[in-house]
């Protein structure tokens, strides 16, 4: 039996053959083959029935929650919040809101940082770590920064793409997919390495980023504008670009802070 026969046999079992093809297949079946197919069909039917019987109904509390989420989005308040978040409102007002948010974020972050560093005991800044650990941390930081930067460029292209006016070709999705695949590997590594409680926010960001990158890597059609639109909405909804910016900003502030602190001579300090 060759591959074609096997696949045709399977199509027969699944009742996918029609018309002449079906008649021809049935005509060519020997009695033994017919019995064998009946036996296989019985097993398949049993498996399918088991799957169907085990199918659970959508629990009412879950459905109520989904409906409530949908209603939030359709209500005026929900729409307003979403528009503010996605900057789909008046472009000028949206931009102003974004600038105000970023400024407030920087100001608040700076304030927390100063408070934190002022109240930190002097001994904290002189915890010594071995050069190997320090080297590993530096490498991890560098890889994280590199991954975030590359992802940012990739997502910016997506966020800036307007399906109404831009040609899908300009996105160059096959290339984006290739880059995303490489970045997914990197995010998996980073997720396993960033295990400190203090890195929780970064872990969450990398986790969300991984989901988006996987979505891009899974795009099968370079003209699938519907999927691109869903991706754009996912990026906006999770505020990925904003969080990357915050993370990078926080990294630069940390560097600036470290530059100002006296450095140890024998071992690296954190």
């Amino acid at each position: 039996m060759d591959k074609g026969d096997i696949l045709k046999r399977m199509a027969y079992i699944d009742e996918q053959l029609e018309g002449d093809e079906l008649k021809e297949f049935e005509r060519e079946l020997s009695e033994d083959e017919r019995l064998a197919i009946v036996a296989e069909k019985r097993l398949n039917t049993c498996i399918i029935e088991t799957i169907k019987q085990a199918a659970e109904k959508c629990p009412d509390p879950l459905w109520d929650k989904v409906v409530s989420d949908l209603q939030d989005r359709t209500s005026y308040g929900g729409r307003l919040a979403l528009r503010l978040l996605w900057l789909h409102w008046e472009p000028g007002l949206g931009l102003a809101a974004a600038v105000a948010l970023v400024t407030a974020g920087i100001f608040f972050g700076k304030w927390i940082w100063t408070e934190d560093s002022a109240s930190r005991p002097a001994s904290d800044s002189t915890i010594s770590v071995s050069p190997q650990v320090s080297k590993r941390l530096a490498l991890l930081e560098e890889r994280t920064e590199h991954c975030l930067q590359k992802s940012k460029v990739l997502l910016l292209a997506l966020a800036n793409f307007d399906p109404q006016t831009d040609d899908a070709m300009t996105l160059n999705l096959p290339y984006q997919r290739q880059i995303s695949e490489a970045l997914v590997k990197e995010t998996s590594y980073l997720k396993s390495e960033l295990s400190e409680p203090a890195e929780k926010r970064l872990q969450d960001l990398i986790g969300d980023l991984e989901v988006i990158l996987l979505q891009i890597a899974n795009l099968e059609d370079e003209y699938d504008l519907e999927a691109v639109e869903m991706l754009r909405s996912g990026v906006n909804k999770r505020g990925i670009l904003f969080r990357i910016d915050l993370s990078q900003m926080s990294g630069r502030m940390q560097d600036a802070f470290q530059d100002k602190t006296p450095k140890a001579t024998n071992s690296s300090q954190i």
Binding site: M1, L35, A36, A39, E40, R42, L43, C46, E49, T50
Partner: peptide, 16 residues
Amino acid sequence: SKTPNHIIEDPERLVR
């Protein structure tokens, strides 16, 4: 893809 009837005589029973 060999037919299972030489191994499992009663697939309904096995699955059940």
